[in-house]
Design a protein around this nucleic acid. Structure first.
Lengths: 244, 244
DNA sequence: AAAGATTTGTCCGTATGTATG
DNA sequence: ACATACATACGGACAAATCTT
């Protein structure tokens, strides 16, 4: 039974819908045994479309780097797994994801300072308009972008946060360098939506992709908030797990 | 000024990209002051497309129930707010959402029994293939579908779960009736994806909509799992919040 | 109350993109 | 590569409903 009939007239081309379905099937491990896609004719049959349409979808995914079609052999799957990020009071971002990939890195995309808006000021327990250190980071697992984060730190307490992060490559180590040895996650709010333009570019998403957005607040052991972050995960590549 | 130029040839129709952008603008509160969309001509100008194209996008969102266009007046925004479901060790579903709407109800869509697959058997700590009570529920806030859940309960212990739910209208009360006075959430895994056919129909989603999927396990106070559920939330209508 | 401006609704035609066989 | 059918996007013109002056 097909999960969902491919439909016309929803503003999404058939080949694009099929590409999305194949991508989803791969990330949920559907072709694990062979490591390759079924033949184009079989896929065309499955989705109830012409083979040409399937070929456009495959070409699109090959361009993304997810597939590699080889004449005579078939269509090989290049990447498969979805990472799982544990979330708990003791959440440490790079620890949680880092051990699920060969290579894991967090880059500072931009840094600066700016005033806290109402939402962030409330979360951090500071006055609206107070200066914050801003840090935008991009994490990559085996070279593939996984998450994009916008962090806010109260500037009064952590004025050198951006530099400390660049020196250490980790928020946890940057906090330690600034004299905060330990901290805990006090809240995480999760939603999902379509990626916007910035996210599409930085996370290398195709248009219409979904992001999981996690807005988190960390606090020191006296329950004083030290960090507000808004992290967008590529929903195709990550799921979030809470042990409570 | 638009964040990013609308692009053609990505397999996504212009009107669809514009509909997605308008939907996102609304849910992030962009037109809160007037409660209406700018005129079609202004939107066309903003997005750099013909007015007809904007009209198709608006018709699409109107069909979703997000907008209502009225001749001579303008285009009214029908709904904007997102419900927030708290998740913690003490999560009680209808309690969490129920107080954010005037009226909240949970319906049993279907019930039955069936064997546990590998994933569910492991989560519930029972043998693969053991019989489970299956229950599919649909929750509505003010008449609008919010979530669709597939629950599994070990049949050995909770053979009358489905009936108990129908009699009480709540999982918590059904457990209580079957002798389980208290239980706790032990894990929740969250991901996001496009809705499939069943979900689209039951949650009244338009094709291409996003669902948040939360796979949760509840256990009694002896840490023995009592329930596995897979809940899909309409991402446009719900966000999940963890206090840790 | 009347006239004009604004805004959505409908019709025409034409060009390009998408999907099939 | 070709031919065919339908969806998408554009442009212009005008009607219908509503608001403003």
């Amino acid at each position: 039974m097909p999960k969902k009939a491919i439909e016309r007239k929803n503003g999404v081309a058939l080949w694009r819908q099929i590409a999305d379905r194949i991508r989803m099937a791969i990330t949920s491990g559907d072709y694990r045994d062979t490591g390759m896609l079924p033949p184009e004719t079989a896929l065309a049959e499955t989705f109830g479309v012409n083979r040409h349409t399937v070929r456009v979808a495959i070409a699109f995914l090959a361009d993304e780097g997810l597939l590699r079609a080889e004449q005579g052999k078939g269509t090989l799957i290049q990447r498969r797994k979805r990472l799982t990020l544990p979330i708990s009071r003791r959440t440490r971002f790079s620890q949680g994801l880092g051990d699920q990939a060969q290579e894991f890195e967090v880059l500072a995309v931009s840094k600066g300072t700016g005033p806290a808006n109402a939402e962030i000021a409330q979360a951090l327990g500071i006055a609206e308009g107070s200066t914050c250190v801003l840090l935008r980071t991009l994490s990559l697992a085996d070279g593939m972008p996984v998450s994009l984060s916008d962090h806010h730190f109260p500037a009064e307490r952590f004025s050198d946060m951006a530099e400390a992060f660049e020196a250490t490559g980790s928020i946890t180590r940057a906090f330690a360098r600034l004299g905060l040895a330990d901290y805990v996650r006090i809240s995480t709010e999760i939603s999902a939506r379509h990626a916007d333009a910035d996210e599409s570019v930085l996370l290398k998403l195709s248009p219409g992709s979904i992001v999981l957005e996690a807005v988190a607040v960390n606090a020191d052991l006296d329950a004083k908030p030290v960090q507000h972050s808004r992290t967008r995960f590529s929903a195709d590549r990550v799921s979030l797990k809470m042990e409570t």
